[in-house]
Amino acid sequence: MLHAKVNQAIHHISQHLLGKEHQIKLALSCLLANGHLLIEDLPGMGKTTLSHALANSLGLGFSRIQFTSDLLPADVLGFSTFDHQKQDFRFHPGPIFSPIVLADEINRASPKTQSALLEAMEEGQVSVDGETHPLPAPFFVIATQNPLHQSGTYPLPESQLDRFLMRIQLGYPSWEAEKQMLRGPLQNNLSGIPACLSQTELTQVQQHIRQVYASDAILEYVLRLSHFSRESDLFANALSPRASKGILQAARSWAWIDGREHVMPEDVQAVLPCVAEHRLRSDVAELGQNTPLSQRLLDAIDPLAA
């Protein structure tokens, strides 16, 4: 039932982002696994479209912050003003107080602003002027970023990249998909995407996904992967325990979307590139030139070996 609704959402989104079903599935499984999502690609590849569509179909309120180099932390978190009538400071919540936050072009903001956002992501609360304000639950951040070789960007440090469960890349659409896109209406009407899940349903789904069965064999496979990344000198950075946990959680979510109540090695393999690549190497400049590190990691480990 819930499962059908999620698939319906995927179907709807893929009407607007043609030929990218796999990425849509990944993005959804990231959100359903209660993780933050980073979408990285060149301008004009549909990053914003995807994030909008995701927010719409999950039926959550969302706010969008366009990150620029002069954006200040207060512009994100909110600020307090003195209320003369009540003789008190009143907190004006920023755009971050919203179930889904679209942080567009996050790497164009200064590190100070970036870290304000990322701290909020991690702790689920915001501290302004010594007062703590809890963020709504659920709370997702969907950030987009340009590849680093683009001018006017501040790279996210590894510690902050680690807070995103997944980083996905959209890539150019196929010939057919792009042709179909050109044939369609000039302006994409994203508001036409129906909300497929209610908020309670979303919580149910998340709870369900946490109970998807991962056998010992799967746990060991994940462990072998992360241990290999630590022992081998192929990788600049190794996978942290948080990464192992993330891989497993994402795999659960992927398996659930696939209609299963148990995780298979293929689920791990499907989500691993998105979950592990940005943790193994933050240097995006090399992307596309070599075999992705996560692929090398997969190739090195036999999913069946005892």
């Binding site: 298979m264 090695p265 293929e266 393999q269 692929q295 190739d299 480990i301 036999d302 999913p303 069946l304």
Partner: peptide
Amino acid sequence: TLPNGPQA
């Protein structure tokens, strides 16, 4: 072949 799991 190597990275293939049982399903693949």
